[in-house]
Design a protein around this nucleic acid. Sequence first.
DNA 1: ACCCATCATTTGAACGATCCAAATGTGGTT
DNA 2: AACCACATTTGGATCGTTCAAATGATGGGT
Lengths: 345, 345
Amino acid sequence: MAGSGTDRLGGPTGRATLSSVAARAGVSPQTVSNVLNSPQLVRSDTAARVRAAVRDLGYRPHRAARQLRTRRSQVLALRVEASPGDGVFDRFLHALTDAATDRDYRIMLYTAQDDAAEIAAYSELADRWDVDGFVLTSTHPGDQRTSHLAERGIPCVTFGRPWDGSGHHPWVDVDGAAGTRAATDHLVAAGHRRIGFLGWPAGPGVGDDRQAGWESAMTAAGLAPDRLARSSNDLTQGRAAAAELLNDPTITALVCVSDVLALAAMAEIAAHGRKVGQDVAVVGFDDTDVAQVAGLSSVNQPLAEVASACIRLITTILDSSAAGRPPERVLLTPSLVVRASSGTR
Amino acid sequence: MAGSGTDRLGGPTGRATLSSVAARAGVSPQTVSNVLNSPQLVRSDTAARVRAAVRDLGYRPHRAARQLRTRRSQVLALRVEASPGDGVFDRFLHALTDAATDRDYRIMLYTAQDDAAEIAAYSELADRWDVDGFVLTSTHPGDQRTSHLAERGIPCVTFGRPWDGSGHHPWVDVDGAAGTRAATDHLVAAGHRRIGFLGWPAGPGVGDDRQAGWESAMTAAGLAPDRLARSSNDLTQGRAAAAELLNDPTITALVCVSDVLALAAMAEIAAHGRKVGQDVAVVGFDDTDVAQVAGLSSVNQPLAEVASACIRLITTILDSSAAGRPPERVLLTPSLVVRASSGTR
DNA sequence: ACCCATCATTTGAACGATCCAAATGTGGTT
DNA sequence: AACCACATTTGGATCGTTCAAATGATGGGT
């Protein structure tokens, strides 16, 4: 309909500006700006005329110019880690980019060797690149990153709770305990009574949280949460820890703190000449690609919801200057995906 | 030494600017700019004085202001895909961000449902966000994205060859044929004679390329590349295809086009009551986390080199206005990582 | 002493948008 | 008719940087 035919996107001088739109609509540049940013100030017929000109010329505000004046870049920074991670970063990244785009923000990436290097990078990113805020992942006990950002007055959200309770920033997290509780309940419902837990080394954080879910579900079912082994998150150690548990032949099911350890358990079960899913049920955590490929039941984190909550929280801080209110917190519940490794057949 | 004590990073008015540095050094703002951008124009003692002022004040150029003037953002855009992908995107992303940072560029993300949506997003990204260039991944036959970018005069590099030969843009790719050739050679050296190939549906692109490597290595070893099955990249279909090959009991080794299909093969081998690595050797492709966890030999892509080559190629185009020369092409050789699935024991 | 060439440095004007304050138009009230 | 309140519109000034052209300093050569 409108503007059929030639596309004036790239006029003689290049692209449309506020002034060129103003000239075409017969108003001042400021009025055009008002139409776009403060429509309530402009009479509706003028606004309509201006909007028509905007459409005709294919005008898009030039972000660098706006940024120079307003000191807002509409850019959020996110660190990409080198370590293998838990295998869900891809999905989180996609969801985060989508959610940011919905609110007219973009995600910009940076890397850092460790927390110290990351903290050192903050002022560079904020000063030079005018990053408006940070989305931090992988929070851990003793995490100093948020306090450094707070000192500099740079807003942030974390995906992950502040595990030492000190945090005074908005965060979004997934209730790991609820996830392992669901996994345990599922196994109990399937008739299992001796259910072991394959966890990470003890310490406050994600690992303990997930273990607590297993414990509470066992206790609630009148069972003793006493079969427990720990391992770092790799296959070799994981198999050794799983072997420990499997030495007890009465154990018929394992709840694992991660998919990697669940796979270790599956391998060890097979090595013991028993069948995964039939003789011993296994449930993992994170629902990674690996789990899908291996037919492993696993606890799935609602990453799209996490991402959109992260964006909602930080853009709320950025867009309204609502500095007074206490930081918002969001705790989401994961869901169990049942596959062959814990199939009832 | 220099600037010990108080850090003037955040002076009374905020941050240091070109003018504040100039005032401190007793020169004009333009001279400061020249010291930083065209040092040969400035007498060395003046330059030294200016550089000292820069250090003292902790001056960092304001990117938005520079961008407004130069029409350069120092930002490259990269699409994050929704689909599960091949499991190497994380690593590529990290390497790409690192490589970009080395040359003072940053990576900004966007998403798109499909190629058409991606093409539609280009002008928005280039106009509004002033993206300097694009890094495209997942090239495929009939890919129209590069030609659309070329029409708009936006530079790009692709990770992946133009599979229909039409491409007239710089690209970086990994020699898939060389990878499967290495895998096949390794199996031949281990004494295998009947080596099957588990591939993707036929068609120009990555799949055919990897298949060609197996064929050429077999032929070179005087063996017939005649045991071949195809499947889409998922576990269920993959197991069926693997079963086809395993019906021939003389086959003792499988080269697979991807880690997912290799895992399918491993599962099927186990289901046939045979032992992976002992009775039947398996090699995958991409060396994903899955492969590491499963003890699967796999072909590893040199993603750090790919990433830095991508950045080198596109920054060369952007920084020098060397538009005349033909687009550069880089083909890198992957390396085989041997694990238990093809162990000689 | 003069003039010109050469280099180093400074000045003035953009880039495109938004902020602030001031100027215009509109209507109602006295 | 003069006035005021209010809605709408406009004119600089400004953000920090770079580009183009103008100025100042220096040093021969004649």
